[in-house]
Amino acid sequence: MGKRILIVDDDPLLVKLLQHKLSSNGYDTVIAHDGADALRSVSANKGRFDLIVLDAMMPEIDGFEVLRKLGQHQSTKKIPVVMLTARRKEQDVVAGLSLGARDYLVKPFMPDELLTRIGRILN
């Protein structure tokens, strides 16, 4: 059974790119377009995601808030999260990592590198 990855980003082009990259490498992908969507998806799927790729800048519930909410429940705490965002100031990186993100990638990023890191986390 393939691993399931939740992609959370409001940029359609990026979503397309990630979806293609990940599914052509054997992962199942689910999309969420913003934070609220993401949290709904997680609870609807009873937290059965193997990994989440998370953007920071999204309306209302941004990536950091999603991280916070995920960290508050036992069932979702352990889902590894890789942040992928244009927010690259030091305080943002620190914030993301201290909120529990397993990794923090800054845009512009290398899709192959993301793939490698995801692979390492999942194995």
Binding site: D11, L13, L17, A86, K107, P108, F109, M110, P111, D112
Partner: peptide, 15 residues
């Protein structure tokens, strides 16, 4: 148009 969006998004081999 898409080019500028991609430039802000990816780097390396893809670019």
């Amino acid at each position: 148009e898409v080019a500028m969006e991609l430039f802000e998004m990816v780097k390396g081999g893809h670019l």
